[in-house]
Design a protein around this nucleic acid. Sequence first.
DNA 1: TGGTGTGAACGGATTCACAGCC
DNA 2: GGCTGTGAATCCGTTCACACCA
Lengths: 233, 233
Amino acid sequence: MPRSKGPAQPPAETGPAAARHLPEATLVRLTQYLRALTELRDAGRSRASSEVLAEAAGVNSAILRKDLSLLGSYGTRGVGYETEVLAQRITECLGLTHEWRVSIIGAGNLGRALSGYGGFRNRGFSVVALFDASPDLIGRDVNGLRVANVAFMEDVLTFTRTNMAVLAVPGPVAQELADRVVRIGVRSILSFAPVVLQVPEGVTLRKVDLATELQILAYHAQQAGQTGPPERS
Amino acid sequence: MPRSKGPAQPPAETGPAAARHLPEATLVRLTQYLRALTELRDAGRSRASSEVLAEAAGVNSAILRKDLSLLGSYGTRGVGYETEVLAQRITECLGLTHEWRVSIIGAGNLGRALSGYGGFRNRGFSVVALFDASPDLIGRDVNGLRVANVAFMEDVLTFTRTNMAVLAVPGPVAQELADRVVRIGVRSILSFAPVVLQVPEGVTLRKVDLATELQILAYHAQQAGQTGPPERS
DNA sequence: TGGTGTGAACGGATTCACAGCC
DNA sequence: GGCTGTGAATCCGTTCACACCA
């Protein structure tokens, strides 16, 4: 791949829909800015400075300005940012302008919790299917969705035009299900299974691991000498 | 706080329990190595090279060796690492040698899912209490735990000697509950609430945000031009 | 010979500081 | 005067390459 390191990218297109490749760390923060902007707007503020916005998003203002500058110039010097305009711009950049159809694989405790999570529908995501292998669950109604038999997953994924899959299944079956989901053409997967998953190039996989989170907390607590219970009553 | 930038830390202690401050990125990987080591050991392998171990953990071997070198010299040149010894060493570094007592605040879908998650108990974490504010849930049995009234949270946190709290509550009440948990002396919090939380210095807060994860997937999918449903049948 | 441990090079992300614009 | 947008400096983490050792 001839990726020259010359600073002069071919001009290509400098239109308002630019912002080719955003760093991962910036992406995470953009979602936080988006939430903060929505809150500010709902609170009636049509403008906000980088300082105010950064405070609401829980970051410092320098990195916020740096991040936003990657999307183009959407602020006004001496004034600040228009919450509505900026929120729209970020929404566009993140690819949230149309609905994403999410299927959740696994209707155990976690899968059911996810299917009922309100934060999805508010932000451009529709949960369109929920699968399980257990006869006790198949056919049951969960948050307005009928649990489908994972044996027929391919058909349902196709029928519902699923383009994102969430794996909420036990570790031992996660790889097999990931393979099936990928084979049918889904290229975005969020996995809660505590195992290493292999996916082919072109498929985006993100992982959330609850045990990892607690282990990291344990490390910091131990570092701070908090090996025992809190000593205050 | 006079944090000098001089490179020469006072020698202090160079014993086997060293490893003062590990970078955050390394911590995340250490938990993955630990899982991989446990799997390898359970599969009967008492030794593994950095190459094998890295493969099992889903990282490259250079960074693995770099990470492990921060814990001291626990490998043998020309041979590899003893899975048992190394697992023990990592466990020790992460502060997992004694049990951590976790309380889950919020017994909605997510809270119930977390309370039943087997990955905790296996790794040195005990779920000791589960709270909610809803009369419909208080007193009910969930995964062997009786849902406690959040109004009496302070008493129960003290009684159970809770030293880690998991917030699985709606955004609007998360800050208030975080404040109460901190006030009683808990210094490690894992939050699933989609809001920015303020905690005082000395308290470690980690956040998991499901909507953020999906939004980042959406960005990558859009980048790859997958705006529509998969086109394969 | 094979594989660890590590200095050095590299690259990416954050912070600083200020020029430029409203 | 105030605030954005951004080069420059800095910090941190990853990759490379190889000295060193069982």
